[in-house]
């Protein structure tokens, strides 16, 4: 059975079903991350001592990863635009770049941040700051992994849809893009909150 309204818009909502679905999902994600930001405020305001965060984490590494994620957002939107211009080769290049940048983000996060911190015994049990740092950035990293899996599918086996149902494939990439930009959006707020304040 095929999912209805994947290409044409429903008359009552004015949207395709996948697009409405992703926006509702993103709304729930806002609340998920919102709960963590809210927890961060409660913990920080209630703490007797709070470390200078920029001394505990590396600002240059955080900034580098911000550039990487913003770059991946640009390549993601370019992948979608390439499909709209009927240029499948460019789509493959831009989507491939998006996946590579996402992987680079994770390599930097794990290799240059998590592992050295754990080696220096800076773990969630060390203090409240490291507990919230690992929780928030860890949850965000899980979202990056989720995005990589979805985008890799659309870059590889899932891209065969382009030949049979090009418009549906364009819509799928748009929906995947909305999720990916949201992941970028969360990091835009995480970076100053965790690294700079």
């Amino acid at each position: 059975m095929e999912i209805p309204y994947t290409v044409e818009e429903r008359e009552d909502t004015g949207l395709t079903n996948p697009k409405l679905g992703i926006w509702l999902f993103l709304a729930s994600e806002v609340m998920l991350f919102g709960a963590l930001f809210s927890s961060y405020i409660v913990l920080r305001m209630g703490a007797l001592n709070w470390p200078v965060q920029s001394h505990e984490v590396s600002v240059p590494i955080g900034m580098f990863n911000t550039f990487v994620l913003i770059g991946s957002s640009v390549t993601m939107v370019m992948a979608w635009m390439s499909l709209k211009m009927d240029d499948f080769k460019k789509y493959k290049i831009y989507m491939g770049l998006t996946i590579l940048l996402a992987l680079l983000f994770l390599v930097v996060k794990i290799g240059w941040e998590y592992i050295p911190k754990i080696q220096h015994h800076h773990v969630p049990a060390t203090n409240t700051f490291f507990a919230i740092y690992f929780t928030m950035t860890g949850l965000h990293a899980l979202h990056v992994i989720g995005g990589i899996i979805v985008n890799a599918y659309f870059w590889g086996p899932g891209s065969s849809m382009w030949k049979e149902k090009p418009q549906q494939f364009i819509n799928r990439i748009e929906v995947a893009g909305l999720y990916w930009h949201f992941v970028d959006l969360v990091w835009i707020f995480l970076f100053p909150t965790i690294y700079l304040m």
Binding site: S73, G177, L178, H181, F182, D184, L185, I188, F189
Partner: peptide, 10 residues
């Protein structure tokens, strides 16, 4: 920054 991402990319 968030506004730019939401308004244009999304």
């Amino acid at each position: 920054k968030g506004g730019l991402v939401a308004n244009y990319f999304m």
